[in-house]
Simulated assay, not measured.
Amino acid sequence: MTTTTTPAPPPTAAVPVRSRGRRRGDLTASSTTGRIVKYALLVLFLLVVLMPAYVLIVTSFKSGSEIGVTGQWNLPKEWTTASWGKAWASLGPSFGRTFELAIPVAIISSILGAANGFVLSRWRFPGADVVFTLILFGMFIPYQAVMIPLRQIVTSINIQPGIPTLILVHCIYGIPICTLIFRNYYATTVPVELIEAARVDGADLLRTFRSVILPLSAPGFVVTIIWQFTSAWNDYLFAIFLSNTRNGPITIALNALAGAQSPDYAASMAGALITSLPTLAVYVLLGRWFIGGLMAGSVKS
C-alpha cells in the first residue's frame, strides 16, 4: 500500500506593511499639496479681483489732497465722508428713477419670456421653430446698430424721452434672452403629464399657464429677474440716447459726476460704489438660486 502525499502550496508573498504605508502616505502628501496649491490660487485670484474694490473704497474716504497716483494704495490719513455726501447729492434723484426703471423691466420681461417659453416649448404649432429663431435673432443685434433708428422711431411717434421710454425698450430687448431661458426650462424640467392632466380637467392655455406652470417657474424667474434688473440698472447706451440728466437713470448722473472738467475722484469713487450697491444686493439675496435656476433647464430630468 502506497501513500500519496500532496505537495504543500507555495507560500504567498506578503506585501510589506512598510511599503503599503509609504504608498498611502505619498497619496496623502500629494493630495495635501494639491489642496494647498488650489487654495493658494483661489486666494491669489480673490486678491486680484478685490484690488479695484480696495482702491475704490479707500479713495472714497480720502480728502482731495491725499488723492494721487503715488498714494493710491495708502489708507487715508484722515477718514472723511464728505465725498459720499457730495456723490449722494448728485446721484440721489436719479437713484429712485433707476428703481422705477429696473423693477418693471425685470418683472414685465420675465413674464413675457415665461409666456413665450411655455408656448414655444409645450404648445407646438406650425412654424414654431421659425418664430423661436426670429425671436432669438434679437439677441444678436448690437445696441449700436439700432440706436439711430430707435431714436427716430421714438421721435416720430412723439414718445417723450425718459424712464417710460427706457422701460419699453428694455422690455422689448429682454424678450429674446428671457424666452430662451424659459423655453429650455419648461422643455426639460416641467413634466408633460402636468400639462396633459390640466388639459383633461378642461383648462385652456391661459389657465394652464397661470395655475400650473407659473407656480413651478420660480428658478427661471430668479435667473431672468437678476439678468434683466442688472442689465437695466447698468445700461448707459440706451439711457444716453433716450433720456437726459433730468429724467434719466443713475448711470447718466454718474457720468456727469465723473466727467466734469475738474473731476472729484473721491466723489466719483463713492458714486461708483453707491451705483453698484443695488445690483450687489440683488446678487447677494438671490445669488444662491441663480446657478440652480440656470442648471435647472440644462439637463432633462
Results as ranks from 00 to 15, higher is better:
F45E: 06
M295S: 05
M269Y: 14
L136R: 10
A8W: 04
V200G: 01
F182D: 00
G113L: 03
L194S: 00
L168G: 01
V192S: 11
T165I: 06
F238A: 10
F99Q: 06
I240S: 07
N247V: 14
E193Q: 06
A13P: 15
A258M: 15
I225W: 00
I103K: 04
I57D: 06
N244K: 05
P278Q: 00
Q152N: 07
F45S: 02
S83Q: 04
Q144N: 02
A232I: 00
L206Y: 01
T70P: 08
R151C: 08
A281I: 09
T133Q: 06
S156P: 10
G68M: 03
L216A: 14
L205I: 14
D201C: 11
G71V: 11
P142H: 13
F238V: 03
A281K: 05
G287N: 13
P176W: 09
E100N: 03
W88A: 08
T12K: 09
I175M: 11
A272F: 05
A128N: 11
F132N: 12
L280Y: 00
L166F: 03
I36E: 00
V15M: 06
V49Y: 08
P249K: 01
Q72C: 05
A266D: 06
L46K: 11
A106P: 00
R18S: 15
F182S: 01
S31G: 12
F125S: 05
Y265W: 15
P191C: 03
N74D: 13
L205Y: 08
I226K: 07
Y39T: 04
L136I: 13
N158C: 15
G248D: 01
A296P: 14
R20G: 11
